[in-house]
Simulated scan of single mutants.
Amino acid sequence: MSVDVGTRLRFVRERQNLSQRELARLTGVTNSTISLIEANRMNPSIGALKRILDGIPIGLAEFFAIEPDAPSRFFYGVDELTEIGKGAISYRQVGESLFGRSLQILSETYAPGADTGRVPLMHDGEEGAVVISGRLEVTVDGERRVLGPGDAYYFESHKPHRFRCIGTEPCHVVSACTPPSF
């Protein structure tokens, strides 16, 4: 089975509202090379493709997981959420793949004492959530708050942030971020 790299590249580039010229500037790959790839007149090496995808940004795995003819799906049962992180913090994503999506929705469960780490997270976009149960300490740009059931947060994700479960019971949060970045 051959993979239509050109059509996929055009799709992810246009989804980010980037012209071929803008993507070339971001990645250091020539505009003509991007044009040839999108026209399926050139097959890039994995290294060159990764460099181009870093400018979008999208990982190689997600890029090759694209199923252009996949039927639309609107509903997901609790057992159909995709686990994308397991351990002291469980991240269960709505939908199998976020290709072509602008929003990522997660059902997060933090074990007592679970923490996203001492180094704050930072990335492009926005994120928000509602605490369903338990208590979650949220630190954003140096400001710290403990949130309980029904409390919420919403901030620009480029601000340093981290999360920690407070207390003896697990904390459950339903969150969303745009663009998908987890």
Rank of each mutant, 00 (worst) to 15 (best):
V29C: 05
L121H: 03
I166D: 10
S181W: 03
H158I: 15
V173E: 00
M42I: 02
T7I: 09
R164G: 04
A70K: 10
I89N: 03
S102H: 13
E108G: 01
R92E: 15
S35Q: 14
L49Q: 07
G85R: 15
A61I: 07
V119Y: 03
M122P: 00
G55M: 03
T27A: 06
D4G: 07
L49P: 01
P179E: 04
G28I: 13
R10Y: 11
N31C: 07
R15Q: 15
S32P: 04
P112T: 09
E62P: 02
C165I: 06
N17C: 11
R15G: 15
F63K: 01
S32F: 12
T116E: 10
L103I: 15
G59M: 03
F63I: 09
D151G: 01
S90N: 07
S90T: 12
D54Y: 02
A176L: 12
P160T: 11
S32V: 14
E126V: 12
F11D: 10
R101G: 12
G85K: 11
V131G: 00
G6Q: 12
P68E: 04
S2Y: 06
P120F: 07
R118I: 04
H172M: 07
A70P: 05
D115Y: 10
T7N: 14
S102D: 14
E126H: 13
V138T: 05
G59T: 13
P160D: 12
D124T: 11
L9E: 04
A70W: 01
G125Q: 08
V94C: 08
A39N: 13
S19P: 11
A24R: 08
G167H: 08
G117K: 02
R41N: 14
G95C: 10
E108F: 00
A65R: 09
P57D: 13
G55V: 02
G117R: 02
C177G: 07
R73I: 10
V119P: 00
E143V: 13
H123M: 10
G117W: 03
I58P: 00
R15D: 14
